[in-house]
């Protein structure tokens, strides 16, 4: 009896250990590729938690296929959304500096995962704050190859995912994940994303438009680490695969944690923007 009991205990322990092992396994290696894809993006999201706010200056160089160039200069400020909120995401403020004709024009976006984003545009010449339709995702951002949705804050729930394998990209071991936008207003049917396994940074994205055509390719480079935790890119290059146009976006002057609050991203604050 005593021996039996001891066996029982051993058996119980073994089962427990096994189930713990299975649980651990379940967390790190999801059973299917959808879960694994999503887990990779949850990890990207988790690693970026707690940045609070940051701003940067972005120079955009637009090129057409004959090599003519045009410049845009913008300042971009991001306020981290409440991590517990299921509906509200990050808030962003974009202020245009060049071309000088539109300097001082500012755009505030409040990202939402369940409904369209809220957007307000400030037109300094008229002193007018104009509500604009948040469904404008697919539109070109100031004539560049970037659309509003390419630059908008990304929420994990904005897409469904599928992990499709590993691949080396730019000498880095990467996950390759397909993500499909849930929003019907998106200009894309799917995106193939390369994420490096070492630091979970997006390295490259291939965009497929509504007709399933491979339309644009984004490459991200010049990552730098801020506050020992947050990776931010130095350059994003978007190349249109159909018409040869391209836009380089060079980001500089990252500043984190200026102590910004919701009030700095409110519709009212637009009138004070410089």
């Amino acid at each position: 009896m005593k021996k039996n009991k001891s066996l029982m205990v051993q058996y119980f322990f073994a089962v427990s250990l096994l189930s713990i092992a299975l649980m651990v396994e379940g967390e790190t290696e999801p059973q299917n590729n959808q879960q694994k894809g999503r887990a990779i993006f949850e990890e990207i999201d988790r690693r970026d938690l707690g940045f609070k706010d940051f701003s940067s200056q972005q120079e955009m160089v637009l090129r057409n296929k004959s090599g003519q160039e045009s410049r845009r200069l913008i300042e971009n400020t991001v306020l981290e959304g409440d991590a517990d909120s299921k509906t509200d995401g990050d808030k962003t403020l974009i202020v245009f500096r060049e071309p000088k004709r539109i300097r001082g024009t500012a755009l505030i976006t409040h990202a939402h995962s369940q409904r369209d984003d809220d957007q307000w545009l400030y037109l300094p010449a008229l002193g007018r704050v104009k509500r604009i339709s948040g469904a404008s995702k697919a539109g070109s951002f100031v004539g560049s190859e970037f659309s509003y949705e390419d630059l908008a804050p990304q929420e994990v729930d904005d897409y469904s995912y599928e992990y499709i394998g590993d691949e080396y990209y730019s000498e880095q071991d990467c996950f390759k994940v397909i993500r499909v936008p849930k929003d019907e207003d998106s200009g894309y049917t799917r995106q193939i994303v390369w994420i490096d396994k070492a630091e979970y940074r997006i390295q490259q994205i291939e965009f497929y438009d509504r007709k399933h055509t491979f339309i644009k390719k984004l490459t991200v480079s010049g990552y730098q680490l801020y506050l020992d935790q947050y990776w931010r890119p130095g350059q994003l290059s978007m190349v249109n695969q159909q018409d040869g146009k391209s836009t380089d976006m060079i980001a500089t002057n990252y500043v984190f944690r200026q102590g910004l609050t919701d009030a700095d991203f409110s519709e009212n604050s637009l009138r004070r923007v410089r």
């Binding site: 697919a138 539109g139 070109s140 004539g143």
Partner: peptide, 14 residues
């Protein structure tokens, strides 16, 4: 009303 169409005729024009 105001109605906006983005990327008309498969271009980047609005």
């Amino acid at each position: 009303f105001e109605y906006n169409i983005y990327s008309i005729f498969d271009t980047t024009q609005d």
